[in-house]
Design a protein around this nucleic acid. Sequence first.
DNA 1: CGCATCTTGAAATGACCGTTCCAAGATAGA
DNA 2: TCTATCTTGGAACGGTCATTTCAAGATGCG
Lengths: 195, 195
Amino acid sequence: MPDIKHFDPDATLETVVRLFWQQGVASTGIQDVVTATGLNRSSLYATFGGKQDLYLTALRRYVEQRSQPVFRCLAEDQRGLPSIADFFDGLIQARCSGEYARWGCMISNAHAGAENSDPEVRALLDRHHRELRDALRAALDTAKTRGQLAPGTEPGATADVLALLAYGVNLRSRAGADARELWTSVTAALDSVGL
Amino acid sequence: MPDIKHFDPDATLETVVRLFWQQGVASTGIQDVVTATGLNRSSLYATFGGKQDLYLTALRRYVEQRSQPVFRCLAEDQRGLPSIADFFDGLIQARCSGEYARWGCMISNAHAGAENSDPEVRALLDRHHRELRDALRAALDTAKTRGQLAPGTEPGATADVLALLAYGVNLRSRAGADARELWTSVTAALDSVGL
DNA sequence: CGCATCTTGAAATGACCGTTCCAAGATAGA
DNA sequence: TCTATCTTGGAACGGTCATTTCAAGATGCG
């Protein structure tokens, strides 16, 4: 059975992720994908299906490889509030500097685009939001048992606030917001949560 | 001089705003505009220029007619914290119910799309952010002089946090987030600010 | 009325969209 | 080595994109 591909689907998918992440689905043509990956339309369609399938696969890959590892790290960190501070620090650094500066978050971007009318996309966005909130909640629970939280601070509601705050950071960073400015805001939010 | 138009440019622009707001620029074709407004390409191009000009004009109209009046109302309100609570209440209601439910905020959407690579668009986004933050800051200053703020709460940094929170609300509402859930989060944030 | 000037309608522009098709190339098993 | 089966290259598909063009229609002024 000569069904061996002449390319690496994983590397290809990573390239596609970056394309959709940076430019958005609507502004990225199949031709862009063909050019960036180097493979041709036949292989592309045979391997990944049409554009929407390709986008969904790329979006899932983004969540699995970029979001969930960070969420896990946050949820399992036993330090409490410092783990949340580190989470936001890493977020702001990733959004404002380095290779992905001003790309925002692929999931946040998907919220704002027309692609969220697809039920599968929307389900992914909801799941992502739940996982982010749960990870923050876990860290806040740890902080509470460690006595780091200000009296009256409820981990559940606070996790919701911080999750929304993260979306705000993602959005503003894509428009070129200053890292220090974002960090000042995040610090203020975390200060109001802790003792 | 027979230079009278056979249509109302203002009403047309309002229709265009809704199109771009709901669907995004990239997913809205000129044909969509022609169909929705009822006028033809010639009049469209003669009056508003090309698509990018049209989008910019629509975006400016959105800010002037939808955002700035609310910002002014917030900044001039002398009640302090209740004015901020009302601001978020109105925001959530507008984003989750009524005619514009699940449309998000046109400015927030522009942050996430490819349109923010246009310098004029980006300038508009920055200005919008500054105005939002300033309005929140004004209300927080009022709250501080009225003794409504928790000790150690700094109006400037808090305004930044609440502005980012508003972006989070805009984003999540477009994906169909529950109004009560959003309100719970906002309440938690405001509670941590007040006494 | 008649002319000048603007708007309007509709067709046409070339470029690009996502997708499909098919012959040519490559490889595993017989 | 031959054959069956998959992948690959590249052309071609109809449709839609933003934009332009131009004759026909409408209007204010003389």
